[in-house]
Design a protein around this nucleic acid. Structure first.
Length: 607
DNA sequence: CTTGAAGCAC
């Protein structure tokens, strides 16, 4: 039998992450009378750090000191890193300061910088980096790896950019690891353009590079860019993983891009990703938002383990499509099954209540949040409940609720009240709500328009003028509304009030028809749905819809689906189509317009 | 036994 030296065995075990075995071996080594040296300690230290055994680590530290190995660089870095892993930065720093040699070693700085970064100690990280530069200690990519993540925190992006420059100046090769970190930093801090620039500059991209960019777009709400990039990724031959697909699905949900969503689902089914709970949650969300509740429910039912996120997605799905009763039932079922609702779950059920007019139920939930479930209601919950009370015409109660809030109300809370004032034509309270809401969102043009409409409905011309003056003074300009859609390979652009289109006659006739239809539905509907049927969105959108309907070869004059689908080669996807009434179109608050080309969706937000 | 640590990103 060949004799393998203790240190070699120890190293191998640590390398293979068999930390427990490594520690056992280390103890065995001591029992056999071998003296650990500067090449034994690091592996033992790393093992106890990885197993999170602070007491064993302390013990090892004592042994290190006794053995006189402390100033060995290898040992030093291991000690520092270990204390960082135990979150005991004071001890890590002590080791660093007590051994002056640390001051000259890149590895020691790196270990400590990572430790500070892990604990979001931005200033310590930067101070250490500066000191390192002053001392003339060389910086490498591991240093940057530690530095960059803390710069993703809000407010540090300009510093992050200078670090990026620094990397370039130092001639550090921006290999995957550093470049990916920088990319993540940019997208997390919302500097999505800079992120994209870096992304484009990267000669080689790995899976994480693509994922970082895709998730970055998804988190910043740039759903169309997500889909574009996803296509490019596939073209580049990079195989997407669960992280990629979560980002893609969330964008499909935003855009109503169900065709891409279905593609993704097929891909999931044909791979082993089907068991990934994150992906399944994203699928539920996508189907729910695209209006296919049957599919959403099937995915939900098929999940062996449902988390609060899964429940929230399905509850939200039923809620947003008007099935408040089912949403409420599901919520109660979730609680029965022992899942603790979080803030987001309450948002979904409260929204469901307000959409379905379940006023009392919603109020009960708000009360239970604190008392039963120990969830502190935030402004996002109050805005739901204000909306709920507002729809029911209980404006005074809504106002009282806002006044009684323990947290500070935000723009959305007052905005919900303002919206309710519009439904119930309460000018006085609208003025009050408006005053508050523009404190929070002075440039949100929507609120000005809302108030102006309230005044104009009340035939208060003075008020309308007042709002207009205010908008002019604040230099708020309403973007000219435009919509576009692609039909048979040509993009048709529609500007509000535009009369230049060759089919204008028929289009305007169709618009009139649609408007009278919307109005008729408006009159027929129950009061609680009044806001659902306020009309058909902006003028350019009406033109686009009219154009689509005119050119469709579909037999029904008006096809009603959640995502209005006119015919195979001419798709219009509207967010907010919220009701199907006798095969007729009911559009609610259409504020986005989408067109599809090769499965890539673009959208334009406008007022 | 001459062995090589520090560590990040979706």
């Amino acid at each position: 039998m060949t004799w393998i030296p203790w240190n070699t065995q120890l190293r191998e075990l640590a390398k293979q992450c068999q930390y427990l075995q490594a520690l056992t071996l280390y103890r065995q080594m001591l029992r056999c009378g071998s003296t650990p040296n500067a090449f034994s300690f690091p592996f033992a230290l790393k093992s106890s750090a990885s197993l999170y055994l602070p007491s064993s680590g302390q013990q090892l530290h004592c042994q290190v000191i006794k053995s006189g190995c402390s100033p060995e660089p290898f040992v030093l870095t291991s000690l520092i890193s270990m204390y960082c892993k135990f979150n005991s930065l004071v001890n890590a720093r002590k080791v660093f300061d007590e051994n002056p040699i640390s001051n000259q070693l890149t590895v020691c700085y790196n270990a400590l910088i990572s430790g500070y970064a892990l604990n979001s100690r931005v200033f310590d990280v930067i101070a250490l980096f500066c000191r390192m530069r002053e001392m003339g200690v060389s910086v490498n990519s591991v240093t940057m790896l530690g530095l960059v993540p803390v710069l993703s925190e809000p407010g540090y992006i300009s510093l992050g950019m200078s670090f990026h420059c620094c990397c370039v100046k130092l001639g550090l090769n921006l290999d995957f690891s550093v470049a990916n970190c920088l990319l993540t930093m940019y997208v997390k801090s919302g500097a999505i353009e800079s992120g994209r620039n870096l992304f484009d500059e990267m000669p080689k991209k790995d899976l994480i590079t693509w994922n970082a960019m895709i998730s970055g777009y998804a988190q910043n709400g740039l759903a169309a860019d997500v889909l574009e990039l996803y296509k490019k990724m596939e073209a580049a031959g990079v195989c997407p993983d669960a992280v990629t697909l979560v980002g893609v699905l969330s964008s499909c949900a935003h855009l109503g891009a169900i065709s891409v969503g279905r593609e993704v689902e097929q891909r999931i089914e044909s791979s082993e990703l089907g068991f990934n709970p994150f992906l399944n949650n994203a699928l539920i969300n996508m189907y729910a938002r695209c209006g296919n509740l049957v599919k959403a429910r099937a995915v939900f039912d098929g999940m062996p383990v449902k988390s609060v996120v899964s429940w929230t997605a399905i509850i939200g799905g039923y809620g947003m499509h008007g099935y408040g009763e089912i949403a409420v039932e599901l919520f109660d079922e979730m609680i029965k099954s022992g899942i603790r609702p979080d803030g987001a779950a309450f948002v979904s059920v409260l929204c469901a209540c307000s959409h379905a007019g379940l006023t009392e139920k919603g109020l009960d939930y708000l009360a239970e949040m604190k008392s039963k479930h120990r969830v502190q209601p935030g402004p996002e919950h109050y805005s739901c409940v204000v909306d709920l009370l507002g729809r029911a015409g209980r404006l005074n109660e809504a106002l009282e609720l806002i006044k009684s809030m323990q947290v500070k109300p935000d723009g959305a809370v007052w905005g919900a009240l303002l919206g309710a004032c519009k439904i119930h034509r309460n000018v006085e309270m609208a003025e009050l709500a408006f005053e508050q809401v523009i404190e929070f969102e002075p440039t949100n043009i929507g609120y000005y328009v809302l108030l102006s409409n309230i005044y104009s409905e009340a035939e208060n011309l003075e008020g309308v003028l007042k709002v207009r003056v205010m908008m002019r003074e604040r230099k708020l300009k309403k973007d000219p509304g435009f919509s576009y859609l692609e039909y048979k390979g040509r993009v048709h652009l529609f500007l509000a009030g535009d009369r230049s289109h060759p089919q204008k006659e028929e289009m305007y006739r169709m618009v009139d028809k649609l408007e009278s239809l919307a109005k008729k539905l408006d009159e027929n509907e129950e009061r609680r749905n009044k806001d659902v049927l306020v009309g058909m969105g902006v003028h350019s959108e009406k033109l686009a819809i009219a154009f689509g309907l005119l050119n469709s070869e579909a037999r029904t004059e008006i096809i009603v689906v959640k995502n209005l689908r006119v015919c195979e080669d001419c798709h219009i996807f509207l967010k907010g189509v919220s009701k199907i009434v006798d095969r007729q179109l009911v559009v609610r608050d259409a504020t986005r317009f989408h067109h599809f080309k090769d499965g890539i969706c673009s959208c334009k937000d406008y007022w």
